[in-house]
Design a binder for these strands. Structure first.
Lengths: 134, 134
DNA sequence: GAATATAGGACTGGTAGGGTCGGATATTAT
DNA sequence: ATAATATCCGACCCTACCAGTCCTATATTC
């Protein structure tokens, strides 16, 4: 359906929330889940991914939580998608791999033309930062 | 994963094929399936949808098949997606329905910002025609 | 050491997408 | 007429993926 996954949505909501607080402010998953009524455990996983991806910094322990590891103006939406969904936002899968990825590869007549669309899409996601979604 | 469905891909391949033939040329599903090694029955369904959607004209019977019902330069990729997938290419589902569609609606903080991205995406798909993918 | 936070593996359940099958209908050619 | 060949269309399967849950381990604070 060509649609962002809920995970990405939740991730963006969380990052936006953090971006609106003063820099360095610690936010817990619980707090986020309550505030936006998101499933806690799922959100927790997302935050962990964002932490592994270097987008947020995690602090363990009783006073722990997450802080933004990058300035919102530097944080590209494309990166968030890549981290959470383990993939670039792509129009067709054939843009990742070579001939192995798609049995149509040589027969596929729309790969090249769709590339144009793909590039435009990339630009879109690569330009938009978390700063802009505040 | 934010990716075009295979159905849409197949549909575009078919339409491109037809667009390259002289106008009015009749093409059968069988021919298309053989040429591009696509699953016949699935492609047949897609062609039927395109016919119902007014994108191609169907001719039944032994000498039957499909012809383009619109000039390739008029045929928007967005329309093809809408017809085949029964949906607009959307970033988030909340852009279809009102508050009923999404329980987050009022809490959702990214709807408005994502709208910008959505509009850009719409422009992309609305501008690109089948003519351009030849 | 109790409380509370992240870390992360395992599992479930629903749904949509890709693909298949069977039969009905229309048209042409023999 | 009837055989051949095309679209039409409903029903079905099956697999993969996604959202969501559960449970346990680990780190940190008080």
């Amino acid at each position: 359906m060509l649609q962002l996954s809920k995970k990405v949505e939740y991730g963006l909501i969380a990052l936006r929330h953090m971006a609106m607080k003063p820099s360095g402010n610690v936010v817990t998953t619980k707090e986020l889940a309550n505030e936006y009524d998101l499933p806690y455990e799922l959100l927790a996983k997302i935050m962990q991914k964002l932490a592994r991806g270097g987008v947020v910094r995690s602090l363990q322990g009783v006073k722990g939580g997450y802080t933004l590891a990058q300035r919102p103006s530097d944080l590209k939406v494309a990166l968030v998608i890549r981290i959470i969904d383990d993939s670039k936002p792509m129009v067709a899968e054939c843009y990742t791999e070579g001939p192995e990825g798609c049995y149509l590869f040589y027969n596929c007549t729309i790969r090249r033309p769709l590339g144009k669309l793909q590039r435009n899409l990339n630009v879109l996601f690569d330009q938009m930062t978390v700063q802009e979604i505040i």
